[in-house]
Every structure is written in structure tokens, then in C-alpha cells.
Simulated scan of single mutants.
Amino acid sequence: PTLDDMNDRLDAPEIHDGIRDEGGKLTLEIYKCRKPIIAAINGAAVGIGATMTCAMDIRLASEKARIGFVFNKIGIVPEACSSWFLPRIVGLPKSLELCFTGDIIDGAEAKDIGFVTNVLPAEELLNEAYALARRIAKHSPVALALTRQMLYRNSAKGHPLEAHKIDSLGMFYQSIADGKEGVSAFLEKRPAEYKQKCSTDMPSFYPWEY
């Protein structure tokens, strides 16, 4: 297979089933997801166990976590689109170090480099992940879905004007939908009751081009 095959026949059965890495198929679906995704890493996350979490939005780890990008050690290369995600999380120099050495890092080092946001005792990990999910779930599902895609896609653009175009459309559509309820709830000092669903009520400009 050639790069032309990947560009022109990506979904042809012989490419889709015979060439494309399974982790990449998974992380591309995670990338397209309209809901925030939280990873709770408890134990070994090596190889695909590490790269699949790169596509998730928030990563928590327990004190038992061991994370490694060990591909070069066994003569292969990183997969699951991690060469796109990992440098956006920890920066290019640290990504190169992690991949070149294949070192296994613990939760504390993962937090130090920004790969995870918090390290907890193993028995508290899932409770913290669920508590964080509940906090996020109180917000507008459509606003969350748009924000998720805006941050991923706009941060990869070459000029802030591209972000401005999408920000403006997002603000316009949300201000005549869930945004009205959000402002009213804030002024009235009550919990918001959002009606929009990300499965049915995404604005017409979504999804925009990569």
C-alpha cells in the first residue's frame, strides 16, 4: 500500500480491514464523539492502553498507574493517532522522549508532565471520575459538544481567524437556544434546565471541515 492508497481508498475493504490500525479507528471515533470522555487509569496502560487514552479529554490516574509508549522498544511505531494527540498534551520534546525511550512512568510523573490531571488512591479513582462526570453533565450537552470540537479542531488551525469564524457561529446559535436558559438560570440563581440534545440539536454548521 502507498500513501495514495490511504488518501484515495481509505475505506476500501482491503485498506480498512488489512492496513488501518485498529487503535486509530477507535481514537477517530472517540475524536468524533459529542460527549466529554474521562479516562480513569488504574494499573498498566502500555501500548494501546496508553495511546487510546490520548484521545480522551480528561485523564485521571491512580497511584498504581504505569503508563508507557513502548513501541520503539519492540521495533514498531506509535499508533492510534497518538502522534497527533500526544504532542498536544505534553508537548513535542516530552513526546519524543517518551516514545524514544519507551520508559514506563507512574501517575506522579504523568501528572508532572501534564498527561493526567490528578493522581488518587486506587480506591478513590472511579468515584472521582464519576463525580467529575456529574459536574460536567450539568451543563448544556450541545455547548459541551461544540466546545469539545472547537478546542480540538481550532487549536490545529494556522490562524486565530479560523477559530473566530467558528466561535462566532457557536455563540450565535447557542445564544438563541440553551444560552437563553443558561443566562436566565444564572440571573435567577437556580440550576439550569437545558433542553437541547447533542444527538438531535447540533447547529447547522456542525460538523465543519477539519
Results as ranks from 00 to 15, higher is better:
Pro141Gly: 12
Met56Ile: 01
Asn154Met: 15
Arg148Met: 11
Leu151Gly: 10
Arg190Gln: 07
Ile48Cys: 07
Cys33Tyr: 02
Gln149Met: 10
Arg134His: 06
Ile48Val: 01
Thr200Leu: 01
Leu169Ile: 00
Pro207His: 13
Arg134Cys: 04
Met171His: 06
Ala80Tyr: 06
Lys189Pro: 00
Gly107Pro: 02
Gly158Phe: 08
Leu86Ala: 01
Gly158Ile: 01
Phe172Ile: 03
His164Gly: 09
Ile105Gly: 12
Thr101Lys: 12
Ser175Arg: 02
Asp57Cys: 09
Gly49Tyr: 00
Ala129Asn: 11
Arg153Pro: 00
Lys94Phe: 02
Gly18Arg: 09
Glu181Ile: 07
Met171Asp: 03
Gly75Val: 09
Glu123Cys: 03
Gly24Gln: 05
Asp103Gly: 08
Leu60Cys: 08
Ala65Glu: 06
Pro87His: 13
Pro203Gly: 05
Phe69Ala: 00
Pro1Trp: 02
Tyr206Ser: 06
Glu162Gln: 07
Ala192Asp: 11
Ala61Lys: 04
Ala129Glu: 11
Arg88Leu: 02
His159Ala: 00
Ala133Asn: 07
Gly179Cys: 04
Glu123Val: 14
Lys157Tyr: 13
Ala143Cys: 07
Val142Ala: 09
Leu28Pro: 01
Asp112His: 06
Ala61His: 04
Met202Thr: 08
Lys195Pro: 03
Asn7Ala: 08
Cys99Asp: 04
Asp103Arg: 15
Ile89Pro: 12
Gly182Cys: 06
Val116Ala: 10
Asn7Gln: 14
Arg135Ser: 14
Pro1Cys: 03
Glu14Arg: 09
Val90Phe: 09
Met171Leu: 10
Ser184Leu: 15
Arg34Trp: 00
Lys197Tyr: 05
Val142Ile: 14
Thr101His: 10
Pro141Arg: 09
Gly102Pro: 03
Ala156Glu: 08
His139Val: 03
Lys25Arg: 10
Pro191His: 11
Pro13Arg: 14
Leu161Asp: 15
Phe186Cys: 11
Phe186Ser: 13
Asp21Ile: 05
Tyr152Trp: 09
Ile74Val: 13
Arg135Gly: 04
Ala55Arg: 15
Leu98Val: 15
Gln149Leu: 02
Pro93Gly: 03
Glu188Asp: 15
Gly23Pro: 07
Ile166Gly: 00
Val142Asn: 04
Ile113Pro: 03
Ser184Arg: 15
Thr53Met: 11
Phe69Ile: 00
Leu144Ala: 14
Ile176Ser: 12
Lys197Ile: 00
Asp103Cys: 14
Gly43His: 11
Gly91Gln: 13
Ile136Leu: 15
Pro141Ile: 11
Lys138Leu: 12
Glu22Trp: 05
Ala65Tyr: 04
Thr51Asp: 05
Lys180Tyr: 11
Asp11Asn: 11
Leu151Phe: 13
Leu98Pro: 09
Leu98Ala: 11
Thr51Met: 03
Asn154Thr: 14
Glu193Ala: 12
Met150Trp: 06
Lys32Phe: 01
Ser83Met: 12
Ser184Pro: 03
Ala145Leu: 05
Leu125Val: 06
Glu29Ala: 07
Leu96Asn: 13
Leu126Ser: 08
Ala80Thr: 04
Ala137Arg: 13
Gly91His: 13
Leu146Trp: 00
Ala133Thr: 10
Leu161Ile: 04
